[in-house]
Design a protein around this nucleic acid. Structure first.
Length: 523
RNA sequence: GGCCUGGUAGCCAAGUGGUAAGGCGGAGGUCUGCAAAACCUCUAUUCGCCGGUUCGAUCCCGGCCCAGGCCUCCA
């Protein structure tokens, strides 16, 4: 069994076979950088991150490109409204600042870095060249210095999204532009438009359309092709990109690159905000810092995994909280395993079967080789069952909900089979690595570098600076807990409770367990 | 008008032509100085409604009802 994905182009599940068996080429439509990333983007980009992580888990190399649309009327408008209204290049500053927060927000959500982040304005030459070719091949026409794509010149127009030309009702959405009188068909779209003196502009060297700026759709086509070649494996964005954006991209690209331009089109669904429309005019756009002030990144990641990517995700703080409640069981198991492993000597916790990280390995071998290490020890049978379910779930069009269900059952088995009592380091280590390795696939990077250095090396390290302080904090708390244990031994429960209350007020929850007190940071 | 989803327990949410994963919540229990937490067990004779195909349908087909998305702003 191999990975299957739902291809929007064919509306079917298909075996995922990259053109080049060694590298998967993925292009993701990124932000139009006129305002910061919000929770909707978070779902989309977290999905693409999990997709990439799973491919890597499967032993594939992934070449992923994401773009910034940094030239757009909304950016220009924002710059015109801002404090430095009218300043030359103000639109670039708007773009720069949004890009910076985007990168920061992605890292906070542990979205792995892309191989390249392309900017539309860095590829204007390629865009001009594409427009030129489309004109030459009769797929575009010029009206008053503006270049339009002629949809009627492309018979397959509408195949990707299902919005065929004869089925479309122009203006049904109430958003038809004002160019109707100049277009040959209402669905024709802008490839290049002239700029007024105060708008950013590029010279083309063409007499009929001498200057101006690119249309939205041509940007992505030019960037994707420039970075990934005339044909590549996966192109995506969220569902809203399907039409018109991706449809138009196909129409522009296939006359020049051939069909199919892209092997697999994938479109994750939106958030379902339960009737509430998130929009800037309503002032209810939830940004990433806001989201992260209410939920930890790993809770958000686990929450995203709770619903299939092609299903609308019911979103609310309460739902995330409910999901996080269940997630505690997983993290608790990881923590218990780590604690018990740390308690034994380094030598004793050595894992007999080498567990090497999968990349650089042929896809067919990657999982079996890793499995050997995971399946070792007393939890072997449970681990085997878990691995089978996890891989089967993810192979079936990234079935994260089933993958998480498998993990819940696995953790249940670990507890049932003596997670808290069995004293065999290799067994504990195998289970620890198995859990953290698979959480990592789902975007949860909870791993102790000492216990699983190979995996830790692949995590977005954001805690480096805090490590030393954290160790000191840990020592202080441990001393307080030692004092409390002393009080309990001498039956001075008032003092013991006082220490517990003090820690609680400081945000440290203490719980008594058979082996001694445990603590964790709480909000 | 065209295209497309989805309606599964109080809530979220998988899924299969052979009789319903998982999580939250709820109910018991174990442990505990007390707490809290944790762990264990239980929690849909039923999958919007009506027909049909079938030995058998939640899953296939037809009709109906309801909710939602897209048809050039949108992740």
């Amino acid at each position: 069994m191999a990975l299957q994905v739902f291809n929007t182009r064919t509306r079917r599940l298909e075996a995922f076979v990259p053109a080049d068996p060694h590298v998967v080429r993925i292009y993701t439509c990124g932000l139009t950088v006129y305002s910061a990333m919000h929770i909707g983007h978070a779902r989309t980009y977290c999905f693409w991150d999990v997709f990439r992580r799973y491919l890597e888990y499967r032993g594939q190399h992934v070449l992923s490109v994401i773009n910034y649309t940094d030239i757009d009327d909304r950016i220009i408008a924002k710059a015109a409204d801002g404090a430095d209204a009218g300043a030359p290049g103000g639109w670039l500053e708007v773009a720069e600042s949004v890009i910076a927060t985007f990168r920061r927000d992605c890292r906070a959500l542990r979205i792995k870095d892309y191989a390249a982040y392309t900017r539309a304005t860095d590829f204007v030459d390629a865009q001009i060249d594409m427009v030129r070719q489309l004109l030459a091949s009769g797929h575009a026409y010029v009206v008053d210095g503006e270049v339009f794509y002629d949809v009627q010149s492309f018979p397959r127009y509408g195949e990707l999204s299902g919005n065929t030309l004869d089925g479309q009702q122009a203006g049904a959405s109430g958003r038809v532009g004002e160019d109707l009188d100049r277009k040959r068909h209402p669905a024709d779209f802008t490839l290049w438009k002239p700029s007024t003196p105060e708008q950013p502009t590029w010279n083309t060297g063409e007499a009929a359309w001498p200057q101006g700026r690119p249309g939205w759709h041509i940007e992505c086509s030019a960037m994707a092709t420039a970075m990934l070649g005339r044909h590549f494996d996966v192109h995506g964005g969220a569902v809203d990109n399907l039409f018109p954006h991706h449809e138009n991209e196909v129409a522009q690209s296939e006359p020049l690159c051939g069909h199919p331009w892209v092997r697999y089109w994938m479109h994750p669904e939106h958030l379902d905000l339960r009737g509430v429309k998130m929009s800037k005019s309503l002032g209810n756009v939830i940004g990433i810092p806001d989201l992260l002030s209410r939920h930890r990144y790993d809770e958000i990641r686990w929450f995203f995994a709770s619903t299939h990517y092609r299903t609308k995700l019911a979103f609310s703080d309460e739902l995330i909280d409910a999901c996080a409640e269940g997630f505690k069981r997983i993290t608790r198991a990881v923590k218990l395993l780590a604690e018990r492993l740390r308690a034994v000597s380094p030598q004793a916790r050595a894992v007999p079967v080498r567990s090497r990280y999968a990349s650089m390995r042929a896809p067919e071998q990657a999982i079996p080789r890793e499995r050997e290490a995971f399946e070792h020890g007393v939890f072997g049978a449970a681990t085997r069952a878990f691995l089978d379910r996890f891989v089967a779930a993810m192979d079936a069009d990234l079935g994260c909900p089933q993958a998480t269900a498998a993990m819940f059952d696995y953790v249940g088995e670990l507890f049932a089979q003596g997670l808290e009592t069995i004293d065999d380091p290799p067994s504990l280590m195998a289970a620890y690595r198995c859990l953290t390795r698979h959480l990592h696939v789902l975007g949860v990077e909870t791993v102790d570098a000492e216990l699983y250095p190979e995996l830790a090396a692949d995590c977005l390290a954001t805690a480096d600076e805090g490590t030393q302080q954290l160790a000191e904090l840990r020592a202080v708390i441990d001393r307080m807990l030692e004092a409390r244990a002393e009080a309990r031994r001498s039956k001075d429960f008032a003092r013991a409770d006082a220490i517990r209350d003090l820690l609680k007020r400081a945000g440290v929850a203490v719980e008594d367990a058979p082996g001694g007190a445990r603590w964790e940071l709480v909000r």
